[in-house]
């Protein structure tokens, strides 16, 4: 579904934020991206929604988009099919909770009635419907992240990318966010989540990708429980 082929990223004069990455992500998977700070996790995620483009190699999404040849217009289309969740939420603080969740649908140009339906259903699912008319700025951090997840889900995305979504949250809120993502995953949405929080994910059965210094490390067998595929993927093209 998403494929990295010999991807290298250099930031300006700083070389090797990512070095010759080969990786494939599969439809319906919940994938964890682990590694120390500065190892290149965010860089890898940004490549998927083409916030940055590779210095060498190519990233392709669904055989429909390839970083090797993509127009600004196509990048917009790609982003409308990917949900992104950040550590700092990136809600529009002075807009209402409802408007934040509705925004991707407004951008797509859907009709008000449909937008209202979808946004309210999603807010209900993340248990935030009661706050729909409040400005986003009035929410607690855990609530903000739930709203951000609802926004990421609004367009029925190919994949939800979460970059340290629990980085600013306490244990309970973190658990809550993980459960939400797991629930959406069980309903068929692919999830790729970067995290530092080993405690939070230690008992989960998901595929893990370890990064270090801009490279993929072979998966640690002792920590890999679950799907077979994980033993192949880091060497897979």
């Amino acid at each position: 579904m998403i494929r990295f082929s010999h991807v290298t990223v250099n930031y300006g004069y700083v070389p090797g934020a990512l070095k010759d990455i080969n990786l494939q992500l599969h439809k319906g998977d919940f994938t964890l991206l682990l590694g120390p700070t500065g190892s290149g996790k965010s860089t890898l995620l940004r490549l998927i929604y083409m916030d940055i483009l590779p210095s060498a190699g190519a990233v392709s999404v669904e055989d429909r988009w390839s970083s090797a040849r993509i127009s600004p217009r196509q990048i917009n289309l790609l982003r409308r099919n990917i949900g992104v969740v950040f550590q700092d939420f990136r809600l529009i603080e002075n807009m209402s909770v409802f408007d934040n969740v509705a925004l991707p649908l407004v951008i797509e140009g859907y009709r008000s009635k449909y937008i209202r339906q979808v946004a309210r259903a999603l807010l209900d699912e993340v248990n935030m419907l009661q706050a729909a008319d409040q400005p986003a700025s009035t929410l607690s951090l855990g609530e903000k992240q739930r709203v951000a997840i609802a926004r990421a889900m609004a367009k029925n995305p190919i994949i939800v990318i979460a970059d340290e979504p629990t980085g600013n949250l306490d244990r309970e809120a973190s658990q809550n966010v993980l459960s939400l993502l797991e629930r959406f995953n069980r309903n068929g949405t692919s999830i790729l989540m970067a995290t530092h929080d080993y405690e939070l994910i230690k008992d989960t059965p998901y595929r893990r990708i370890y990064m270090e210094n801009g490279e993929l490390r072979q998966p640690d067998r002792t920590m890999n429980v679950g799907k077979e595929r994980i033993f192949k993927t880091s060497t897979e093209e």
Binding site: D51, R73, R80, R90, L91, I92, L103, I107, R151
Partner: peptide
């Protein structure tokens, strides 16, 4: 600028 950056990540077109 934050809002504009967010709208871009959500795939908003130039005109919007």
């Amino acid at each position: 600028r934050e809002q504009i950056a967010i709208m871009k990540i959500l795939g908003a077109g130039n005109l919007f």
